[in-house]
């Protein structure tokens, strides 16, 4: 974390110094929360909420470090190569950690990673221009069935969090669209608004503004329940298509970190994020905190791996 001394450090350092005498974990050094995306994205903001309230609950500073090289592999390798002392943790969604590992040669095994705390769940959402023909999901599917490949969908990067539900949905609902990989949600949004692309797949934060002012319509969510940001948008399950593939943002430790330390981290991080100040910050930044402890987030992690293995096997058959 850069400029640390300029910013957060001073206050934390003063409170931290008092507790230094007994070298309890975690207190000797700042915790580095490494994320595989550029600064300013959803994962980054989620990390910064924790970072803002950490001093009080973790007895040390939490530095958010964004490293987006090599499709996220650089960040993961940095955490893996660091000493397994619990001071270097990974904050990621499943894209770089799981999808890439299932598709390419990576330096780690998936069971090397132990989820500590799930911070939030992100809902993949399909959207289109409000003044276009795609007014709801049913119409969308109908048109797509009549003209296979006639509808184009901008969905962020290939096999990204919004792309996989699209693939799943096409399998379940038996239709075909033209998948257009974009540099991210921003480009998908721009092409949909500009009319170059018929529909988009992204996450609620990307389209909240457009839905709010009526230029966009959110078609459906790939989650089990509706989300607060888009209360009127149905889930695909409600519409009769069993596609549930939310993305979690979860903090991982390497499995070699001592069990006691993992437990301490789990407890303290949960405590920090449940605090009123963290809740307030989350509210302000439009982040739904969906907190899960070690056991539950492990289950979510395993489920995701199983789901992705199935989807990717399907794709490779095509």
């Amino acid at each position: 974390m850069k400029f640390k001394h300029l910013v957060l450090a001073t206050s934390v350092a003063i409170t931290g110094a008092a507790g230094m005498a007994a070298a309890e974990f975690p207190s000797e050094q700042p915790i580095r929360l490494v994320n595989p995306y550029g600064a300013g994205g959803g994962v980054d903001i989620a990390g910064r909420i924790l970072s803002s309230v950490a001093g009080e609950f973790l007895d040390t500073r939490v530095d958010v470090i964004s490293i987006d090289g090599a499709g996220g592999q650089e960040a993961i390798n940095l955490v893996r190569d660091a000493e397994a002392d619990g001071y270097t943790l990974l904050l990621t969604d499943y894209g770089p950690l799981v999808t890439t590992a299932l598709r390419e040669d990576v330096s780690y095994d998936l069971d090397e990673w132990v989820p500590l705390v799930q911070i939030t769940e992100v809902a993949p959402v399909f959207f289109a221009r409000a003044d276009g023909p795609l007014t709801d999901m049913e119409t969308f599917i109908e048109i797509a069935r009549d003209d296979p490949g006639g509808i184009s969908v901008g969905h962020g990067r290939h096999l990204s969090v919004p792309h996989l539900p699209l693939i799943l949905l096409e399998g379940v609902a038996e239709f075909e669209t033209t998948h257009l990989p974009t540099t991210g949600g921003a480009q998908a949004l721009s092409f949909v608004l500009g009319g170059q692309v018929d529909a988009g797949a992204s996450v609620p934060s990307t389209i909240a503004g457009g839905v709010g002012d009526g230029s966009l319509v959110a078609l459906a969510l790939a989650t089990a329940d509706r989300v607060e940001a888009l209360p009127d948008t149905p889930t695909l399950q409600e519409l009769g298509y069993d596609v549930v593939l939310p993305a979690w943002y979860t903090i991982f430790a390497h499995r070699d970190v001592a069990e006691e330390r993992k437990a301490v981290l789990e407890e303290r991080i949960l405590e920090a994020l449940e605090s009123p100040s963290a809740q307030a910050l989350a509210q302000r930044s439009g982040t739904d905190l969906v907190l899960l402890g070690m056991e539950d987030s492990m289950e979510a992690y395993q489920t995701t791996i199983a789901n992705l293995e199935a989807i990717l096997a399907d794709i490779d058959e095509d």
Binding site: K2, H5, L6, L78
Partner: peptide, 8 residues
Amino acid sequence: FTQLAPIL
């Protein structure tokens, strides 16, 4: 490089 923009 150690105080303002620390390198690893």
